[in-house]
Amino acid sequence: MIKFGYAPVVSRTLDLDSSDFSLRDELIREVPSYKKCIGCGGCTSTCSAHQHTEFSILRCNMLFRRGKYDVLEKELDKCMLCGKCLLVCPRNVNTRDMIIKMRLLVQHKNKKQ
């Protein structure tokens, strides 16, 4: 099929004004250590899943912080919960619980919609 005509260009900018921070706030309540992340990327570099895919805990964490949950559903599923990230994190963030709770929160949100 030949495509023609115009399509709007989607901006890549994360507009934080339109972000919904409710899930992030809920996550902060459930996994308080989540706040301590300094974005060093240690978790991501040791991640077994990251060896094979683009899956990045750091990216999931950051998107969640910015209140952007759209792509997370697909992403979070790739975690194997092996726990290596837990041993690497310099700030003692409970990364496994963070991923599990993120999954549940995103899942819950998508179900509501």
Binding site: R12, L14, D17, G39, L58, M62
Partner: peptide, 17 residues
């Protein structure tokens, strides 16, 4: 005011009021 910056950990531009 609206701030524009690059979220370098996400490699995405961000903006916020």
């Amino acid at each position: 005011v609206v701030l524009k910056a690059e979220d370098t950990l996400l490699s995405r531009p961000v903006k916020m009021t």
